[in-house]
Design a protein around this nucleic acid. Structure first.
Lengths: 361, 361
DNA sequence: CTGCGCTGCCAATACGTATTAGCAGCACAA
DNA sequence: TTGTGCTGCTAATACGTATTGGCAGCGCAG
């Protein structure tokens, strides 16, 4: 039988002073390393069952919570991921982040979020590296603006941007463009337009090439007046559509490289009184929530954004937790599966219809 | 004159092994604490100018980067903020987060993002506390679900949720409701409806009360059939509007407690062929980007979301960096300024117009 | 009774930084 | 010459955990 220290009753004051592994060890009557063996995350440690029980009981009684900072220092790992995104207010980007957050949180990793619209990616990366970050999820924009050796010594996974330097999770962007083209061709459209970003982001390029190549195969002309480059947002879409509506012959259908552009394009049509989809069809790409909310609802090629983020996080974690140069075959297989292009699919909604004067059979 | 170690030329191999303050000290020919005094963040330290120069030169030559983890351990602070949000995919929330991110990044703090839609707030909080987080930004939903003593010992700032326990940044939510009511009354509407969330979030309640009290003062009845409670998203808005359109007399104007609800309401009207704004006016609240993208554009009461997030972050940083019980008068004044309710303003757009049969003078 | 291997625990140390206390060295006045 | 005060630096230690090496104690075979 033993008395609790009269100065405090352990159970009641669990929050007052920081309780460390030493306190737990003292209460359990073992040394600090022994307590550390039990409370650390190495279940392989050889500790007698009775001792383990005593330590766990003491930890519970004191309300022990491991200090991740101290653990990080000694292990040289922070159990945290950095995510560098081009713009926090882009809904597609946030869907990707949401997918990544779910995975990283469930694996016990914290997520440090960095917005490039406020600070350059290089500055964010400096902060992340100083924090001994375990890995970085990089959007295409981030990968483009960063010098490659700023990223030396850290695990990197790229989101929808191929590279022979770092692994990444791609989407089948070429198919996205092709699906849009096939859909519009099938509706009888022969005078087509395209709106994409001026920046050189691979996924956008592939969407464009899938669209262009399908038109080419069908023998459709793609004059440059109907091939517009703008900033990839709503304003850009409006500008592009204003220009396209002035072109003669006027396009009867337009494919936009993302939904924000498409929404801007649709808005501009409504502003100018152009009938949608009676006079003009618009197809977007991404399937952000907003696409279903405008009128008419936007026909678009859905990119599985959350899944994209989730897979990118899983792939990054795989590299973090198995840093070996030549890992297990099953690990390699898992990585290969995660690196496979994500399928896309066409969602036909109200913004696309048969070309004017074409009766569909 | 001294030779560099023949084993490596310092400038070239800056990335190979982790360079510590000891390496810098050795190269500069001073002790580790001296180098630490120069490279740490205490400019008050008394170091001779010549020594300081030598240390800085050595640090630059070696590409020294401070290890924030080690610094955190000894200082007992992590230089990181936690942000716990109800849903990463809510655009209003993300605007708030974007504002907070900008401030925290510019002050050298990292931002750990936690999404309650994937894990309960309590679980996130456990992770954050284990990481010695310096402070937490909490949305109303987070504050509601957390037991108060889970937050003991950490700085907390609430976003748009009053509490006598923690500081927070409020918005003038009552005025938001009042503005909406005055606007609609001014347009001649006398049969009004309201749609709000079923959850008990203070800001929503105040918007509702501002709206209700203004109607009451004008002698307008508010029967419960025209007072709907749904989940605060697009689907909820659709459901509520479907119900409201069946009420007799049918309302000629509806105020929705946030824009997502309002967008759902507008969508439902279009689906059922109800003319907007000719037969029915809809007013939202928040002014998310989407509000300008639907047709007709949504009349709404703008809440300055980014400013809200930015102020919350600044307020939190004030508490973190001045933990004194009785701080400076200027600090108190700054806190008071940051705690003042954020003004809101009405943005009249296309979704509201004069009541049917009312000619405006 | 000795030698060997195994189990279970602990002493010592490391991680990279910040901070406290104190020691030289110097200038200056008494 | 001694005392005093200041400047500029360093030795020692702390932060809380993980890990290495080694030491008792025990069972068992020779």
């Amino acid at each position: 039988m033993q008395f609790p220290s009269p100065a405090m009753t352990p159970a009641s004051k669990s929050g007052s002073a920081r309780v460390t592994v030493r306190d737990v060890a003292a209460l359990a009557g073992v040394s600090q390393p022994t307590a550390s063996l039990v409370l650390g995350q190495h279940p392989r440690a050889r500790v007698a069952a009775a001792t383990r029980e005593r330590v766990l009981a003491a930890a519970a009684q004191l309300g022990y919570r491991a200090n991740v900072v101290a653990r990080s220092l000694v292990r040289g790992r922070s159990f945290a991921l950095g995510v560098v995104v081009p713009d926090l207010r882009n809904p597609f980007v946030m869907d990707v982040v949401a997918g990544a957050e779910r995975v990283s949180a469930s694996e016990g990793y914290a997520m440090l979020l960095c917005d490039q619209s406020a600070r350059p990616a290089a500055a964010h990366l400096e902060t992340l590296l100083a924090r001994q970050i375990d890995g970085v999820l990089l959007d295409a924009a981030g990968a483009a603006t960063l010098s490659p050796d700023a990223l030396r010594g850290v695990n990197v996974v790229l989101i929808d941007e191929p590279s022979n330097r770092w692994p990444g999770v791609p989407t089948d962007a070429f198919a996205a463009g092709r699906l849009a083209a096939e859909h519009l061709l099938g509706l009888g459209h022969r005078v087509l337009g395209f709106v994409g970003p001026a920046s050189d982001v691979h996924a956008y390029r592939m969407r464009e090439r899938g669209f262009a190549q399908t038109l080419r195969e069908a023998g459709i002309a793609m004059p440059s007046e109907r091939w517009r480059r703008v900033s990839p947002n709503v304003t850009g879409g409006q500008q592009a559509m204003r220009a396209l509506l002035a072109v003669r012959p006027r396009p009867t259908a337009v494919f936009c490289a993302n939904d924000l552009i498409a929404i801007g394009a649709v808005k501009q049509c409504l502003t100018q009184g152009v009938g949608l989809p009676s006079e003009l069809s618009v197809v977007g790409c991404d399937d952000i929530e907003m696409a279903r909310l405008i009128t008419p609802e936007l026909t678009t090629v859905a990119i599985p954004a959350r899944e994209l983020g989730a897979r990118a996080a899983r792939l990054l974690l795989s590299y973090i937790e198995h840093p070996d140069a030549a890992p297990d075959a099953s690990i390699l297989a898992a990585r290969r599966a995660l690196s496979r292009p994500l399928p896309v699919r066409l969602l036909v909604r109200g913004s696309s219809a048969a070309a004017p004067g074409v009766a569909l059979t």
